[in-house]
Amino acid sequence: MTTLPRTRPRRRRLVSRNTVAGWSFILPNFVGFAVFTLLPVVVLFYVAFTNWNVFGVAEWTGTANFRRMWDDSSFWTALRNTVYYTVFHIPLTLAAALGLALLLNRKLRGVRFFRTVAFFPYITSIVAIAIVWNQLFSPEYGPINALLGAVGVDDAPGWTTSSTWSMPSVIIVGTWRYMGYYMLLFLAGLQTIPAQLYEAAETDGASAWQRFVHVTVPGLRHTTFFVTVLLTIESFKVFDLILVMTGGGPGQSTLVLSQYIYQKGFEENQFGYASAVSIVLFAICFGITVIQFMVNKRRNS
């Protein structure tokens, strides 16, 4: 009875002291984070409902931007192309990264060297990568078509100069760049699978494929989930690689959502309309991540 009134103020003092301490640690970073990330995200939902232009004169226009978007064929092209990129980039990168990780998880000579090599594209700038690949893809004199010609392909594709092949070109380069990064995540995941599981499976006479399906795949569940979330966001926001490689062309064959936002916003100064398109990108990335988390949670329980 006598202790209660004494501990309560002490507890409260501790809480308030901790609050001051906690906030003073977080504050220096939080100020920058709030002003340059959180605030813009909030403001986005205001600007998208206005006709904000370069002079900063904004009128509330309600859903006008979204109604305009509905009839905007360029917007739908950009959305379709983004989905095109995503649908191929995710499974290709996932397969390549997992394949490389499985290969590197074995006791082979030169594994360390190879890990360095595989990670190298990821730390190289997009601009340099796009420039080199454009030379490699050069339809008439480039080494890729020369190699294709050497193995007997007569009508080699025009790659970035052809509207049918421009998107596959970009997907190839995107996969090439990111597979090393996701390989590292898979490697880290593989190392958490206990070796005894493999040994037990082997004494039970499981084949390599059965071991993969029944030990490796379940053991990598969490990693695969996380990689898929990251890959989804990364695919939907694809921009700089395409901007430098093809500029969205030829025609609109590689125009993606991010680039359309950039065009409308920074080239045509239609900040309001560009923000409305941004909300679509935001909703897709955020929505898919939330759905993926929910599905993962249900599968776990």
Binding site: W23, V43, V229, K237, L257, A274, S275, S278
Partner: peptide, 29 residues
């Protein structure tokens, strides 16, 4: 301290929000 987890969630949540989607309002700011 109270509110810590909510604050951290705001940090983590922005990882699912690509910069491209808020570059316009950020530029205005």
């Amino acid at each position: 301290f109270p509110g810590r987890n909510a604050l951290f969630l705001a940090y983590v949540g922005t990882i699912a929000v690509p910069w491209q989607s808020y570059m316009i309002p950020q530029f205005i700011l």
